[in-house]
Structures are given as C-alpha cells and as structure tokens.
C-alpha cells in the first residue's frame, strides 16, 4: 500500500527508530510500512498518524482513487 509516512516523518526530522519507539513496533516494521511492503492494521495506522500528528487521510489515502 502506497503511503506518505516516510515523507512526513522526514519532514518532522524524525528517524525510523524514534517513530518505531513511539508507536511500539520495530524499526523494521516502520521500514516495511514506508516501502509499502507491509499493510499495517488500522490500530497501527492510527498510532503512526498520531505520532506524526497527521490524519489517516494525510498518510494513507491515495489521491486519484476516490
């Protein structure tokens, strides 16, 4: 699943490790989510959105699929 987690995280000057610690998963899981190689549960999506101070739409909604 394509998403804007990486670009948002980089804009906030946050490392993968910091985001991982905040949402309670491993750095590898964050890397997989960012690359679109793992589809996170809704619970993890919400945790990531909260940690990055964004909405689910901001991070996970694909423009043009509406």
């Amino acid at each position: 699943m394509k998403n804007r987690v990486k670009i948002t995280r980089v804009m906030l000057n946050m490392t993968q490790g910091e985001l991982a610690r905040q949402v309670g998963v491993t750095r590898q899981t964050i890397g997989l989510v960012e690359k679109g190689e793992y589809n996170p549960t809704l619970q993890l999506c919400v945790a990531i959105a909260e940690a990055l101070n964004k909405t689910l739409d901001d991070l996970f909604w694909e423009v043009g699929k509406e």
Binding site: K6, V10, Q16, R27, Q28, G31, E34
Partner: peptide, 10 residues
C-alpha cells in the same frame, strides 16, 4: 536480517 534492514533503512 542485515540485508533486509539495509534495504529498509533510509
């Protein structure tokens, strides 16, 4: 693990 993490790390 090392090879996988290298690909995933920014």
């Amino acid at each position: 693990s090392y090879q996988k993490n290298k690909k995933l790390t920014d």
